[in-house]
Amino acid sequence: MSGHLSNRILRETERLARDPVPGISVTPHEDNARYFNVILAGPAGSPYEGGIFRLELFLPADYPMQAPRVRFLTPLYHPNIDRLGRVCLDILKDRWSPALQIRTVLLSIQALMSEPNPDDPLNNEAADLWKKDIARAKQMAQEWTTRYAK
């Protein structure tokens, strides 16, 4: 483990191991305990259901005063996730609070997968389709899930 880790990070990591979030696996990286490999199951009832999505989560040096950085490694078709895997989510930006935890962030991402917000997009093409033809947008999301997340 490199560098000094706060008791907060150690407690959160231990809690995630002891009391995992359903559908979410979080493993600290061997070389850097601020970097986590995340496996997230596509939420039931969403176009991502049945998919297994890989993410990376990094805790900056001033965590919890600054939000974690999260990125999807598995491509997905979603209005709030761009082609680089970046996530547009208020709690990762201006609505971050030190009271939030890694667990909260991952649950919020899982909820965002179930309820996309096309009014605050990172992927404008997906957002436009979500607004114009939600059935076709969900079909695209399912096709990408089958192609990249199975």
Score class of each variant (00 low, 15 high):
59 L>H: 00
79 P>M: 10
22 P>F: 07
94 D>L: 04
19 D>A: 03
14 E>W: 06
63 Y>S: 04
14 E>Y: 08
129 L>Q: 00
93 K>D: 01
110 Q>C: 02
83 R>F: 07
8 R>T: 09
81 I>A: 02
52 I>P: 05
102 I>H: 03
109 I>K: 03
116 P>Q: 10
101 Q>D: 15
101 Q>N: 04
26 V>Y: 03
71 R>W: 01
54 R>F: 09
17 A>E: 10
135 A>F: 02
11 R>I: 06
107 L>F: 13
143 E>Q: 11
129 L>C: 08
16 L>N: 12
41 A>V: 07
68 P>G: 09
75 P>R: 15
86 R>F: 03
82 D>W: 02
68 P>L: 14
94 D>Y: 11
68 P>Q: 06
144 W>K: 03
102 I>K: 10
133 D>Q: 03
139 Q>S: 12
137 A>P: 06
46 S>E: 07
93 K>H: 09
102 I>E: 09
109 I>F: 11
95 R>E: 13
16 L>F: 12
116 P>Y: 05
30 E>N: 15
89 L>M: 04
9 I>Y: 06
37 N>A: 13
94 D>C: 11
150 K>I: 08
87 V>Y: 09
35 Y>K: 15
113 M>F: 00
42 G>V: 00
23 G>D: 11
112 L>D: 09
145 T>A: 00
128 D>T: 07
39 I>H: 09
84 L>S: 14
144 W>S: 09
70 V>M: 12
127 A>S: 04
88 C>T: 01
42 G>C: 07
12 E>G: 06
118 P>M: 10
91 I>C: 14
